[in-house]
Every structure is written in structure tokens, then in C-alpha cells.
Amino acid sequence: MDTRRLKDKIFTITVIALSIVAIAPVFHIIIYVSYRGLPVIVESGLEFFTSIPNAVTDPKPGGIAQAIIGTLYLTATASIIAVPIATLAAVFSSEFPRSRLTHVVRAASRSLLEVATIIVGMLVFALLVLPTGRFTAVAGSVALAIVMIPYVYTYVELAMLSVPRTYVDAAYSLGMSRALVIYHKLRIMRRGVVRGLMIGVTKAMGETAPLLFTAFGARNVLFGGPLEPIDALPLMIFQFIQTGYDNWIKLAWGGAFILLISYLTLFIVTRVLVKEVKY
């Protein structure tokens, strides 16, 4: 074999090996988290989903219901705040592409995507926690909404821009007003809009850093209301895994398994949705 061919062979084998190294962790993570998390859920049984964490001295770990409720509450309220703002902003920049505000909002959204999410937490802390003197679920919702906005904005804008020009021209030629055309564009691209929402929700659901100084975590009640601190799955995992208590570390693994399953489910649902967006 001449040297060129040999070089080529070595190169091919190396890149394949390195690619496997790059993607192997994701499989190992899925297996490892299931291996550590599933036994905990089996041990706790139904209680895992219905009760709050037991005391560290208790023989059984108890449950993470407060974290599941918290994550559902926070992502739902964050979506309610983020989706209208992000969608309207996306409609604006797709409708008025040459406006100066469009350039500014695109740059702002790009920057928000890159900003460390802990800085989002610090911002909301300064705006809502410092003046009121308390950590609240509302602060957590706002922080997650800020995390979601750039994602929803990006995907909805993409969806709006992909509506064929001929459709829009046809709509105008029928004498439709601009507002009506926008409404119909959103309607035909609703799958794109839903996809943006899903990606935002997936992101918000898994965030830890923005909640540290806003939602703060509360583990003695299932749900304390919007003006009290609230727990969330990532927050509980992050804090419990660092404690030295067996019971709480177990709950962290159980929670990690639930979070992983929720993420995988949302990932698959989003995939299916995207596959069906066709013209």
C-alpha cells in the first residue's frame, strides 16, 4: 500500500474513533443515571411522586413531589410570560425586516442566548428579590421566562420567514389587512411556533443557575403559592447531590432520572413535530 492510501486509512480510523469518544458520554450518562436513579424510585414506590423528602435520619428517602410540582408550575408560568413577548417580537422582526428595531432585537436575542444563565438569576434577584426581601416563585418564573424568550423568538421568527412569499402576496391581493395576514401566517406555521415553544420549555425545564437566587427551593411543603420560595427538579438535584446525606443523595439521583426521562420525551416529541412540518 502506498503512503497516501495508508495515511488515508489512518486518518479515517482516527476520526471515527474520536467521533465515538465524542458521543459515547451521552449513552453512558443515560445508562448511568438510570442505574443510579431507578432503584431509588423502586425503593420509595408511589411515595416518590406524592410526598416531600423525608428527614435525613428516616430509613426511607421519601419523595420529590414538591420539585415535580415546582418544575411544572415554573415552566408553565414562564411560558405564559415568555411566549407572547417572544412571539410578538418575532412577528415584528419578520414583518418589518428593515426596521432599526429589528436589527437591535435580533442582536439582543443573540446576546441573550449566549449570556450565562446565572447572570439572568442575578438580574431577577436585583429586580424582584432585593426590593421585596424574599425569594419567590414569581421571581423564578420571570428568570425562566428570560431564559426562554430568545429561544422562542429565534424559532418563531424562522417559522414566520419560511412562509412562502406567494401565499403572502395572494393574501394581500385578496384585500386582507396586515393583521389578518399575520394571523394566517401564524396559523399555517403553528407547528413552527409550537416547536419554538417546546425548545424553550425544554431549556427552561433543565435550568438550574437562574433559580438559585430567585425560586431558591422549598422542601417542606408541596406548594407554597406564588409569593413563597419554590422547588424545581434541577435545583433539588443540584443541592441534594452536594449534601452528605444518603437519603437526599438518593432523591437527587431519582430526580435526575425523572428529569432525564422528561427531557428525552420532549426531545422525541419535538423531533416528530419537526418531521411533519412540510410544504
Partner: peptide, 20 residues
């Protein structure tokens, strides 16, 4: 798989990193 890795909650990477 690459997309799946991209969106994975970071705390999951964290607990895996800490324990394994």
C-alpha cells in the same frame, strides 16, 4: 445524537461528572 447532547439539562452532566 449530537442534537440530543446539545439540549441535555446541564445538571445531569453535572451529577454524572461528580459521581462518575
Amino acid at each position: 445524537i449530537v442534537d440530543l447532547m446539545a439540549g441535555m439539562p446541564t445538571v445531569i452532566f453535572g451529577v454524572w461528572g461528580l459521581a462518575f
